[in-house]
């Protein structure tokens, strides 16, 4: 597994994007593991009766994709300290969702390297459906 060190990070650099395409089956399975049994995530009729265009992806599943974006990037020794996100728009199943991020700040605190990032998710129409921030800590190169 790859290692990412604090010294490798430059402000403004991009996090390698993560592309996800949640399926309707995945939404049902997410309901099981997450306990989010809100029918707007698997019952088309119910979702429409609530004024939604159709079934929507659970916010916290999308949140998990942002977590994956970060852990794929930081590797074995990276630690997630904070992950905040606002659900700006609805995500729909069977659509390609691209998670992206950028380094906005790096600093050392208590001997640990910290990196602040801005994160977002884009739908196929280029709209940002999620936007957020994260702080990860990374080891220093020996």
């Amino acid at each position: 597994m790859k290692h990412l060190y604090y010294e490798d990070i430059a402000v403004g650099s991009e996090i390698p994007p993560l592309v996800k395409k949640p399926t309707t089956d995945q939404l049902v399975m997410w309901g099981e593991v997450s306990g989010d049994h809100n029918p707007i995530h698997f019952d088309e009729g119910f979702a429409r009766s609530r004024g939604l265009p159709g079934i929507i992806v659970q916010g916290q599943l999308a949140f998990s994709f942002l977590g994956q974006l970060l852990s794929d990037w930081t590797g074995e020794q990276g630690v997630l300290n904070k992950l905040n996100c606002s659900y700006k728009g609805m995500n729909f199943p069977e659509e390609t969702l691209t998670c992206r991020g950028k380094v906005i700040k790096r600093y050392t605190m208590a001997d640990k390297g910290h990196v602040d990032c801005s994160l977002w998710m884009e739908n196929p129409r280029g709209e940002r459906t999620l936007s957020g921030t994260a702080t990860v800590s990374l080891p220093h190169r020996e």
Binding site: G59, K82, L83, N84, S86, Y87
Partner: peptide
């Protein structure tokens, strides 16, 4: 609907 999630680990 979900507005936001802020997680501090």
């Amino acid at each position: 609907l979900h507005g936001s999630t802020e997680l501090e680990c």
